[in-house]
Amino acid sequence: MKASTAAPVGQEAIQAKGWLRAHRFLILRRLSQAVFLALFLLGPWFGLWWVTGTLAGSRSFGVLPLTDPLVALQSLVAGHWPAATALIGAGIVLVTYALIGGRVYCSWVCPINPVTDAAHWLHDRLGLHKGWQPKRQTRLWLLGAVLAVSALTGTIAWETVNPITMLHRGLVFGMGFAWALVGLVFVFDLLVARRGWCGHLCPVGAFYGLLGQRSLLRVSAARRAACDDCMDCFAVCPENRVIAPALRGKDGDTPLILSPDCTNCGRCIDVCSVDVFAFTHRFDTHVEDPSPPRPRTAADQAA
């Protein structure tokens, strides 16, 4: 085993770049999630109604409507034509995530993400086995089931059990059953399936993954020739199967991570001590050549 592989995950990056730079995108994601959550809580908690509603549907400053397009789609298949403002709001959100990457929602906005990340952290600290790993397509089947149930019942079915919505309602009106539901997600990821909820089951993540298939924002392994095989990027990536095609690609293969399952969380960028990864756009396919060998000096020859 290489020394770099045996070292704790991210340790090399901390030594090479410093703790702050080795955690910058993680910190920014937590701030982003906290800000989005705080905007919704300012009204009921402090009377500052800048944003009303939840992530399912909201209005900002009394003007800008935003609607979760999955909620709008459930409403349509249930036979209920949404109001014009709801359709406009869904269109705004749909275009935004289609451009920047659908599953950016999962890593930068969704309040359940810190819960599942905490479960994964504890899972690793306890040295537990990865457990049951549902197939990738499971969340797509669940997404189809959500739409089918909505059509059959004439309701926006998923919102009755959506942990995201339940967490929002719980923080505003008192947690009650919401605590139990969020706790079940945590326990599921901790004891049943490592990264099971977001990575394999959540129909919201499946929907946003489909939405962002042609998105502009991408992570690139443009400096893949510098990779020292420490494996830290695979250890921290919530969807680590998306890394290999870009990182291990042959000459002529794109260095871009093009899988819609990528959440653009930036952790691979954080933990890479040799800066293999970077954010870019989907048309940036350049691959940097390996650094030329350092010329041998007289001191080297003497040694």
Results as ranks from 00 to 15, higher is better:
Cys227Ile: 04
Asp232Met: 03
Arg214Cys: 12
Ala226His: 13
Pro203Phe: 01
Val219Trp: 07
Gly199Ser: 08
Cys202Lys: 02
Ala225His: 15
Leu191Thr: 04
Cys227Pro: 03
Leu210Ser: 06
Ala225Phe: 11
Cys198Ala: 03
Val204Gln: 09
Arg218Ile: 03
Pro203Thr: 00
Ala225Gln: 14
Leu217Trp: 13
Arg218Asp: 08
Leu217Pro: 11
Gly205Tyr: 10
Cys202Ala: 10
Cys233Asp: 09
Tyr208Glu: 01
Leu217His: 08
Arg223Met: 10
Cys202Asn: 09
Ala221Val: 00
Cys230Thr: 06
Gly212Ile: 02
Tyr208Gln: 05
Gly199Pro: 04
Ser215Val: 07
Ser220Arg: 05
Cys198Phe: 02
Leu211Asn: 03
Ala222Val: 10
Gly196Asn: 03
Ala221Glu: 05
Gly209Gln: 05
Ala222Asn: 12
Gln213Arg: 15
Trp197Ile: 00
Asp229Arg: 15
Gly196Trp: 02
His200Phe: 10
Asp232Ala: 11
Ala221Trp: 04
Arg194Asp: 08
Val192Tyr: 13
Ser220Leu: 11
Val192Ser: 12
Cys230Asp: 06
Gly196His: 03
Val192Pro: 06
Ala226Tyr: 09
His200Met: 08
Gln213Asp: 10
Gly205His: 08
Ala221Gln: 02
Leu211Lys: 06
Ala193Leu: 06
Leu191Val: 04
Asp232Ile: 03
Asp229Met: 12
Phe207Lys: 07
Leu191Lys: 06
Val219Gly: 06
Gln213Thr: 13
Ala222Leu: 07
Ala206Met: 04
His200Ala: 12
Cys233Phe: 06
Leu211Pro: 02
Leu201Thr: 04
Gln213Gly: 13
Leu211Val: 03
Cys233Thr: 04
Leu217Val: 15
Cys230Asn: 06
Leu211Ala: 05
Ala225Lys: 13
Trp197His: 08
Cys233His: 09
Gln213Glu: 12
Ala226Asp: 12
Phe207Thr: 01
Cys202Val: 02
Gly209Arg: 01
Leu210Thr: 05
Ala206His: 01
Ala222Ile: 07
Cys230Leu: 09
Ser220Thr: 15
Pro203Gly: 03
Leu217Lys: 10
Gln213Ser: 14
Ala206Gly: 05
Gly209Lys: 02
Cys233Gln: 09
Gly209Met: 04
Gly196Ala: 08
Arg224Tyr: 11
Ala226Asn: 12
Arg218Met: 09
Arg224His: 09
Arg224Leu: 08
Trp197Thr: 01
Cys233Leu: 11
Val192Asp: 10
Val219Arg: 06
Asp228Lys: 14
Arg218Ser: 08
Ala222Gln: 15
Arg224Trp: 07
Arg223Cys: 08
Arg214Ser: 13
Leu217Met: 14
Val219Lys: 02
Leu216Asp: 13
Cys233Trp: 02
Leu217Ala: 14
Leu191Arg: 09
Ser215Met: 08
Gly212Met: 00
Cys198Asn: 04
Phe207Val: 06
Leu210Ile: 06
